[in-house]
Design a binder for these strands. Structure first.
Lengths: 189, 189
DNA sequence: CGACATATTGAGATCCATCAACCAATGTGG
DNA sequence: CCACATTGGTTGATGGATCTCAATATGTCG
């Protein structure tokens, strides 16, 4: 992600007043998912935000019957299908536990209403959306300017835990390259 | 852009109360730019949002001395360097008039303060940021799944005015392909 | 152990970038 | 008003990166 995005968001969270934080608590519950279980399936409307408490998850869509992984989630990351979540329309994406996950699930509708009551939550939502957009821009930059090897090396440098914890199949599609090419890149270095 | 994004934003704008709209007016002024003139240069901090009243502009960055065009702006579009704007740090991107432009320039700091006073403006900012993120996701999808020809065909279908009004050099880099390849694609169809 | 998912390796085909030459339209200075 | 530079686009030849298909290996788990 973007440098320090978490810390800035944490900071904002810390500055929220007690009532707002409590209100969010009440709209949230903990849920556990087994490996390969879906937090969200294509076709469903994304009616919750999913914050990973522990475990690993991924977001992907199907294109020509092939799974394209678009995002990987670790502890503290928040997973939603943005299009489905913001527009409350059927999702094109799946969100799936790669490892058994404990997830903090916050209801969309409740959060919408809370944003009306607590300006701090509205600001928080804006902040998170901005950071997501910055992350998307950074990713687009990589596709625009780097070849497969460079993208992999950058991932290795910035997210070494990805490489350790994620099956190559998912990593390859996340990097926009074939499994075979990724395997060869790894052999070469 | 994302379908109907403008209309949803317009709708929100229309529902703003009079005071908020007036306040924005006061933080905004009109500025004209000649062809090739910069609205924002790399290194500067992006202290304004630029809404195109008329003309055409582009956003780009330099990579290995080459210009990579990342976004094209027509009437009503809002141009900012998101990273520089939201973090108020030096921009990596340039924003440049491709054609003579009339631009509605809104001061960052003033808008920040107005967002504190008028919840509707905060919501508006969130809405715009969400739509920008959705647009980025759609673009990433294209890079992830489509080859050069498919990306061009889609552009031709969804933004025919791009193809008519933008020099091929910029279009090619916007599509992430070389000028020569774009030329060949056009010859082939 | 057997079975199924996951990863490696090889060979051929394909897409696309690069380098280079060329062309057409436009504009400018003498 | 012509000669020439400049800008924007086309076309050709070549090489490299990466995909695809296919075969083989390496797990890993019941």
């Amino acid at each position: 992600m973007v440098e320090n995005s978490l810390s800035k968001i944490q900071q904002h969270l810390a500055s929220l007043d007690e009532k707002a934080r409590e209100a969010i608590e009440n709209a949230t519950h903990i849920k556990k998912y087994q490996k390969n279980e879906y937090l969200l399936q294509a076709g469903e409307i994304c009616k919750s935000g999913f914050q990973i408490v522990s475990g690993v998850a991924r977001k992907f869509y199907l294109n020509d019957g092939k799974e394209i992984t678009t995002e990987l989630f670790f502890t503290d990351d928040i997973a939603v299908s943005l299009e489905s979540y913001t527009l409350q329309q059927p999702s094109k994406e799946f969100i799936q536990a790669i490892e058994p996950c404990t997830v903090s699930v916050t209801n969309y509708q409740a959060f919408q209403e809370l944003k009306q009551k607590h300006k701090g939550l509205l600001e928080l939502d804006l902040l998170m959306t901005e950071y997501y957009a910055l992350w998307l821009e950074a990713r687009l930059f990589q596709f625009h300017t780097m070849d497969a090897t460079q993208r992999y090396m950058l991932l290795l440098k910035q997210q070494p835990h990805f490489v350790q914890q994620i099956p190559l199949t998912y990593l390859a599609s996340y990097l926009g390259i074939s499994l075979e090419t990724l395997s060869r890149i790894r052999a070469r270095i």
